[in-house]
Design a protein around this nucleic acid. Structure first.
Length: 105
DNA sequence: AAACTGACTTCTC
DNA sequence: GGAGAAGCCAGTT
């Protein structure tokens, strides 16, 4: 590992999110080194263009609300999550069932 | 190097 | 839980 920019860490972490699960920006930010860098995480998602390598649609806000999506908006994001098997509560993700946390290495 | 921006989080009412 | 306000971080210009 070299040049571990925050962005790189976020990309790697998001890339580890399994299908049918979601993570919050705060969770990602914390695992990346700064629990308050949730905003920075979101920006990295917006700059991200490889949805296949970085499933940014699996990243939601702390309350389970879907935030922006650079590939069709929250509508497409929601559809993607539902299609993967993520539980939804109206317009929000059921974090109690679909919130995922990385393995303790 | 400084300033601005942005897909956030948390507190209070 | 919803609405409003303040604080925080990294990236881009």
């Amino acid at each position: 590992m070299k040049k571990s920019s925050f962005k790189t860490a976020v990309y790697s972490l998001v890339h580890t999110i399994p299908n049918g699960k979601v993570m919050t920006y705060g969770q990602v930010a914390k695992l990346c080194g700064n629990p308050k860098a949730a905003r920075a995480v979101g920006m990295c998602m917006s700059t991200n263009t490889d949805t296949k390598k970085v499933p940014c649609h699996r990243v939601v806000s702390s309350t389970g609300t879907l935030t922006g999506y650079a590939f069709g908006g929250v509508l497409a994001k929601k559809k993607l999550l539902v299609g993967e098997g993520v539980c939804f509560k109206g317009d929000r993700v059921d974090l109690e069932k679909s919130l995922w946390s990385p393995p303790t290495l």
